[in-house]
Amino acid sequence: MHAVLKMVVQRVALGVLTLLVVSALVFISVEFLPGDVAEQILGQSATPETLAALRDQLGLNTPPVERYFDWLGGILQGDFGQSVISQRPITELLAQRLGNTLSLALLATLISVPLAVGLGILAALKRNTWVDRTINIGTLTAISFPEYFVAYGLILVFSVKLGWFPSISIVSGTVTFAERIHLTLLPSLTLTMIVTAHMMRMTRASIINLLALPYVEMARLKGASQRRVVVVHALPNAIAPIVNVIALNIAYMIAGVVIVEVVFVYPGLGQLLVDSVAKRDVTVVQAACLIFASAFIIFNLVADVISIVSNPRLLHRK
């Protein structure tokens, strides 16, 4: 276990470094966008005097480098700071949105991971039969459509025609657990349809690979059933690649769901990020990007740890 711990520490340190680079890149990119916060807020009604007054009030007259390091100093003390525009504390702004994004990703994960792994195993077992082909065609078709098309399709069927689910998913602090599920089921299904194919294909490919190995043949020869061969002998060895794909997809469901959030008017982090980029609210943009980057770093780390633990050989690689 010592080696795992060492790796975790190393990876966390690398992760922190990555976050630092990300934050600098994001800050620079926002600085490069045309127009600053003051111009975005005042829009058509800007005059040179009002712009100057607003810049002064928002503290935009200090040089960018100084502003960045001020912000960085705050982060190191655990203070995300305030929104440049609304002056609301970012922690408060992000907390609810992050909760929403995570709950959506969680629901989508709970549906999609068992579904994808199950379908993958089934497809591997019934390789090259109509079952395999149907699963492949179905999931690949779903992933081939753009997200908004899948979303509108689901809205048309389940919301407009059948009326089972709402077309907009505005969740707030007061909704009950059951209401939340009801509100977020359609966006979760959209995400599910988009991520399933990837995970399913990886599961299928890994298992098919393993099925060709001698130890599987050995298991077969000793008389194990096909199901037992796949679930008990092949699957544990397939965990590493599958977990990696799952981790990537979960991270994607946290960071890449902007379009789904817009279509369903879901108050998650993606909407907040789009909003804040449009207004050049740089502190909020940075905080949101850090969260997204952290999601990728954390899930990759978790996937690596699981891979290593599931395959002791990786621990002693030299």
């Binding site: 919301s159 077309s167 907009i168 279509v263 008017v265």
Partner: peptide, 19 residues
């Protein structure tokens, strides 16, 4: 008062009676 920037989402919301 709900903010819906996307016109299609707004139309959907009206059609389904959400707003």
């Amino acid at each position: 008062i709900i903010l819906i920037n996307d016109p299609t989402a707004a139309t959907n919301a009206l059609v389904t009676g959400a707003v």
